Simulated scan of single mutants.
Amino acid sequence: MNHLKQIAAGLDAYGIDAMLVNSEPGEFYAIGFHGEGNVVVTREGCYYFTDSRYIEAANDLVTGAQITMTDRGRNYKAMVQEVIDRHSIKALGFEDAYLSVADYNGWKEGLTAQLVPAQDLLTGLRASKDEEELARMRKAQDITDAAFTAICRFIKPGVTEQEIAARLQYEMLCRGAEKMSFDPIVASGPNGSKPHAIPSDKKVALGEFITMDFGCKFGGYCSDMTRTVALGEPTEEMRKVYDVVLQAQLAGIAAAKAGVPGRDIHNAAAKVIEEAGYGDYFGHGFGHSVGIEIHESPNANHSNEKPMPEGAAVSAEPGIYLPGKFGVRIEDVLILRAGGNEDITRSPKELIIL
């Protein structure tokens, strides 16, 4: 899998003669390969430069690009300059969201072409997933759903948040995950009011909510899901808050489709929480895009006025967080279509009592 043709087709729209891609996610999107190197996309051809650690694998896996290995007398900058000379490149796009100031200055001083910020070229392409990308995301989500089923059998009073987090990773790796999308979040009882709590040695106890936010990578693409379960019988307040979050998520999902501004999707969910009296306890956006990275653009939040694109993979994760008490978050991943969306998360959302 690669997206070299799509990148080349976008050069004219950004007024550039070629695109330099050297971020980790950009490299994988461009050539479908996890290494450390530089991709140069021109209208006439594509190039991939890497070092001795990755050259053999690159020759086996990378298609659609001329592959060359660096050596002591010919570094990345020299190789890119050769392409600039060969194709008479005047304007070279680069990933300005990933390049540090020091790296930018290094490239600028060593090349004759003008460096032009062109992050939006890749960001725009990555926002709409093709069917091969979506197939990998569905598989990653299948693994994550199966891990959730397994973890519900593992949780019992006395196990720690750290043990639950470790077990989640084990369950995903055993089912074919390459690695985690991010470090799992496991938060029980009062720790649940921290949306990005770090799993601790706290033991889970009867009468508590346990929020688990986790995901894995398959084929280079992420899954992401959150479920909040009750260990033992929940209180009336816990049930009420859980139901509000669930209804908010369902309202956001109902509003989510291609062509709808991200803020409208967010507001559909936020309205439910606000009207229930918990507006002050929902401080983040309804969702973010997911793909090669766990947080991509565009977002379904209050500040995004732009229409969401067809094929975007977006999380649906409202939450309510009551300091000193508990928190509830429920998260699925949606594929946006013109007439609605596909929810690729299969785990039940009704309150589970363990």
Results as ranks from 00 to 15, higher is better:
328 V>W: 15
329 R>D: 10
38 N>L: 05
206 L>Q: 05
280 D>Y: 11
290 V>Y: 14
5 K>N: 09
87 H>K: 14
82 E>L: 10
29 Y>R: 02
61 L>K: 13
233 E>P: 02
57 A>N: 10
251 A>T: 08
62 V>M: 11
133 E>R: 01
213 D>K: 05
284 H>W: 14
229 V>P: 00
149 T>Q: 04
149 T>P: 00
307 P>S: 10
104 Y>N: 03
228 T>I: 02
283 G>I: 14
203 K>Q: 15
332 D>V: 06
282 F>T: 13
107 W>H: 06
344 I>H: 10
20 L>T: 02
32 G>T: 08
61 L>W: 09
72 R>S: 14
2 N>K: 04
205 A>L: 11
326 F>R: 09
258 A>I: 08
13 A>F: 00
145 D>W: 05
277 G>Y: 14
260 V>W: 10
54 Y>P: 00
90 K>Q: 11
320 I>M: 06
31 I>Q: 05
269 A>Q: 13
85 D>C: 11
300 A>C: 12
177 A>C: 12
120 D>L: 01
207 G>N: 10
330 I>E: 12
261 P>L: 02
295 H>T: 08
65 A>G: 04
261 P>R: 10
247 Q>R: 15
185 I>C: 15
297 S>M: 13
209 F>T: 00
232 G>Q: 06
10 G>V: 06
34 H>L: 09
56 E>T: 08
351 L>E: 06
144 T>W: 04
181 S>A: 15
10 G>Y: 04
224 D>H: 02
151 I>W: 01
170 Y>A: 12
230 A>E: 02
206 L>D: 14
149 T>I: 01
245 V>A: 06
319 G>L: 07
25 P>N: 04
243 D>A: 10
48 Y>S: 03
16 I>V: 05
347 S>C: 04
179 K>S: 13
73 G>H: 15
156 K>Q: 01
148 F>P: 03
126 R>H: 03
248 A>Y: 12
309 P>W: 06
348 P>K: 12
217 K>P: 00
149 T>D: 06
81 Q>V: 09
243 D>N: 13
221 Y>H: 03
303 S>P: 02
200 S>C: 12
156 K>G: 00
221 Y>L: 04
283 G>A: 12
124 G>C: 00
110 G>W: 15
160 T>N: 07
191 N>C: 03
46 C>Y: 07
329 R>F: 10
42 T>R: 10
160 T>D: 09
116 V>W: 12
345 T>Y: 11
230 A>G: 06
